[in-house]
């Protein structure tokens, strides 16, 4: 990572926090407070369970929405506002710019997820929850899913003809990625070779978000340990592949 890419990263973080990203923290706080008031009538354990699941789901959903919107507009906005010209005329590679922008977005998202997790934990402890390390694993793998989907959104934003089509396609792939196992099942059951090949191709190309879900891998410590390493490697490799493809498109762009 070069000093110039780090400069781009730093200013992207400033941009995102000064522009819009902090507003999602406010939304998250409101949802948590509202939910805690609504479930106050439930019994102790039930209340904690709902608050835990709801908080984690909200955290991932808000990071997803803000991350995908920010990723799709990360380069397109700069192209439309023409701010990109005064950056690219300087002695830096386009890869430094693209990677710097992506890492800036990722840093801002991780920071906001960290703040949301701290708020959530504060409320859980206040309600009498006892610390469980799998909470951290769940948040870390939500962050992994967000990293994968934002890199995909960035690639699609450079490939698609408009930001709306890039957004639609990203959200479609987010949903499809959560049904990877069903896709595999479908591919194995169908009797038509061409259809099997097509579904298998989709299965391998679409990000396998089901694989990154903590809940599906809680059976035993051995399984969990193997999954952790494999899932982390999968998320990093998929992200690098998306960024490489995005760079291939970005190198040919004219401004």
């Amino acid at each position: 990572m070069t000093a110039k890419a780090l400069s781009i990263t730093r200013y992207t973080v400033i941009q995102l926090f000064r522009n819009k990203l902090f507003s999602i923290l406010g939304i998250f706080g409101c949802i948590l407070l509202g939910a805690s008031l609504l479930i106050a009538s439930l019994g102790g354990d039930q209340q904690l369970r709902v608050l835990l699941d709801l908080g984690l789901a909200c955290l991932e959903f808000l990071a997803l929405v803000s991350g995908v919107f920010a990723a799709v507009t990360l380069i397109l906005e700069e192209m439309e506002a023409r701010t990109i010209a005064l950056v690219l005329i300087r002695p830096l590679h386009r890869a430094e710019y693209l990677v710097g922008r992506f890492l800036g977005l990722l840093t801002a998202l991780l920071l906001s997820m960290g703040i949301m997790a701290a708020l959530h934990l504060g409320l859980l402890f206040f309600k009498g929850w006892r610390w469980d390390a799998s909470y951290l694993v769940a948040v870390a793998f939500s962050a992994g899913k967000i990293m994968v989907i934002t890199s995909l959104a960035l690639f699609l934003s450079l490939f698609a003809t408009s930001s709306i089509s890039a957004l639609t396609l990203t959200f479609f792939l987010w949903v499809l990625g959560h049904f990877s196992q069903e896709l595999k099942f479908l591919a194995n059951k169908t009797g038509y070779p061409a259809f099997t090949a097509l579904v298998k191709a989709i299965y391998y190309v679409v990000p396998n978000f089901a694989y990154l879900n903590l809940k599906d891998h809680l059976e035993g410590t051995g399984v969990m340990g193997r999954w952790l390493g494999g899932a982390a490697l999968y998320a990093v490799c998929y992200t690098v592949a998306c960024l490489t493809l995005a760079l291939g498109l970005f190198r040919r762009k004219e401004f």
Binding site: K4, I8, Y11, I14, A81, V87, L92
Partner: peptide, 20 residues
């Protein structure tokens, strides 16, 4: 076309860093 969310000093620092 400049980054409106940055201050004058910040934007010059960014461009200076990118210009080595």
């Amino acid at each position: 076309s400049l980054y409106r969310y940055l201050t004058a000093e910040e934007i010059l620092r960014l461009y200076g860093e990118l210009s080595e």
